[in-house]
Computed example of a mutant assay.
Amino acid sequence: MGMVSDDGLHEGWLAPVFQDGQRGYGVSGGGIPHDHIAVGPEVQGPDGTWRYPSRPAGEVTSWILVCHCSSSSGSTATWLGPEFVRVPSAALEDLQTRRIHAVDADVQDVFHREDVEAVVADLWRTEHLFTVGTLDDVAAAAAGVAAARARLDGAVAMARHGGASWADIGRATGMSRQSAQERWRTPPPGPRS
Rank of each mutant, 00 (worst) to 15 (best):
A167D: 06
G12P: 03
R183S: 07
W63L: 03
A140E: 00
A164V: 06
D109E: 05
G24W: 11
G31E: 06
P188Q: 03
T78G: 08
R177I: 01
W124D: 00
G12T: 12
P16G: 03
S54E: 05
Q96M: 10
W79Q: 01
V43I: 12
L129C: 15
V103E: 15
L95V: 05
Q181I: 04
C67K: 00
A164F: 06
G144C: 06
A147F: 10
F111A: 02
A143W: 08
P88S: 12
V120K: 04
V60W: 02
V120M: 08
E11K: 06
P46K: 07
Q108N: 11
R113P: 10
F111Y: 11
L14P: 00
G58F: 09
V60M: 00
G174M: 04
S165G: 14
L92Y: 10
Q19Y: 05
A141V: 11
L135R: 15
V4W: 07
A150L: 11
R23C: 11
E182G: 14
A105R: 10
I32P: 02
P188T: 01
H10E: 01
D153M: 06
A150F: 06
W50K: 08
V66C: 04
A159R: 11
A142M: 03
V43C: 10
T134P: 01
L135F: 15
R23Y: 12
D109S: 00
D20P: 01
A159S: 03
A157C: 01
I64F: 10
T186W: 15
G31W: 13
V17Y: 08
D136S: 15
S28Q: 04
M175N: 08
W13Q: 05
A142I: 06
W124L: 03
Q22K: 11
Q96T: 12
E59S: 08
T126P: 02
S75V: 04
V116H: 14
D153W: 13
Q181L: 10
V120F: 05
A57W: 05
F84C: 02
P41N: 04
G174C: 15
V39L: 09
L129F: 09
A180C: 05
V110E: 04
E42R: 15
S71Q: 14
V60R: 03
E83L: 14
G31L: 12
T76A: 06
P16K: 05
H101L: 10
I32V: 08
E127T: 06
M3D: 00
A90Q: 10
L123E: 13
G29A: 08
S54Y: 13
S193T: 02
A102W: 01
A141D: 00
L135E: 15
T134I: 10
D47M: 09
E93W: 07
D6V: 04
R185N: 07
E11S: 06
R99Y: 11
L14F: 03
P188I: 01
